[in-house]
């Protein structure tokens, strides 16, 4: 299990990155932490001509967690562990803070990056579902400049995103949690740190028991993180009740069509998505 031969570059600036991408085209792969890429290289599932290591780039556009109070941005090169330890993230993007501990294990979270996870777009990963639930914005950068894409439009199909040749993920932008809003992240994984069978990222407003602006995004149920628009519509403006939860769970039939994985059939995933929906809504309503 040794990786195939490839070249390696550690550019010092974005401009150099763009040069390398231009020069090598499809032969190039960005190394942005490599916690998935390296495994696929060792298994020879991927044979790039060159790895462009961007992890040490010192570009403000891609680094750091910044907040102006209204918007919090997370640079592509921010490591999972930094997000986990970030007080501003915990305060302003609590959904993400709840999700990070589910990302693999600490040694992986010390190396894996936010941008790497977003760009890889694994439908079973935690961040994409959170980004979709929060209607976050993904900022992409190329030689032509920056381009903003709503997360809900970014994930196209299995491992396919809106990223264009010569473009990389620069950062994610999140609207800081507004008063009255709550977040709940839940997933069902058979072992701690595994990819979940199914998971839900939930966010929304709860006032006097009435739910509004609820968003529910699911991971592990398809090629991309899935926003459950029908279930969300059922919930809009309604008082929390077991009947309401039941209606939302039934509505999921129109939102999700999960395919089987190694251990769980689509039907099981659907059932578990409904169970998680009930639990997530209860937690939202109860402020747990």
């Amino acid at each position: 299990m040794k990786a195939p031969a490839f070249d390696y570059a550690r550019p010092a600036s974005l401009a150099e990155v763009f040069d390398l991408l231009d020069r090598h085209g499809d032969e190039a792969k960005l190394l942005a932490g490599g916690q998935t890429l390296m495994a696929t290289l060792n298994m020879r599932l991927s044979q790039p001509g060159i790895l462009i290591d961007i992890t040490t780039l010192n570009e403000p556009a891609l680094t750091g967690i910044r907040s102006d109070g209204a918007t919090l941005s997370i640079g592509a090169l921010v490591k999972h562990r930094e997000i986990e330890r970030s007080a501003p993230v915990a305060e302003q993007v609590p959904l993400l803070a709840q999700a990070v501990p589910h990302v693999a294990h600490i040694a992986i979270r010390n190396a894996g990056t936010f941008g790497g996870s977003v760009a890889f777009a694994d439908p079973a990963a935690e961040y994409p579902a959170c980004l979709v639930a929060l209607d976050a914005t993904i900022v992409l950068v190329s030689r032509a400049g920056e381009r903003k894409v709503p997360a809900r439009d970014f994930f196209k199909a299995l491992y396919e995103t809106d990223l264009q040749p010569g473009e990389l993920v620069a950062r994610g932008e999140f609207v800081a949690q507004k008063p009255g809003y709550r977040s709940v992240f839940m997933e069902l994984a058979r072992r701690h740190g595994d990819y979940a069978i199914v998971g839900v990222a939930a966010n929304g407003k709860v006032a006097g028991g009435v739910l509004s602006d609820i968003s529910l995004a699911y991971l592990g149920v398809g090629g991309i993180p899935v926003l459950a628009r029908q279930a969300m519509a059922v919930l809009e403006g309604q008082a929390y009740s077991t009947e309401l939860v039941g209606a939302a769970q039934r509505a999921l039939a129109n939102d999700l069509d999960p395919a089987a994985d190694l251990y769980s059939s689509g039907a099981t995933k659907m059932h578990l998505a409904r169970v998680l929906t009930g639990r997530a809504l209860a937690a939202l309503a109860e402020g747990a």
Binding site: Q35, M38, A107
Partner: peptide
């Protein structure tokens, strides 16, 4: 598992050149 710059990482997912 080894430490790089004080943080534990997976050595098999880390390139020596990096």
């Amino acid at each position: 598992t080894v430490r790089v710059d004080g943080e534990i990482v997976r050595g098999c997912l880390t390139l020596a050149v990096a």
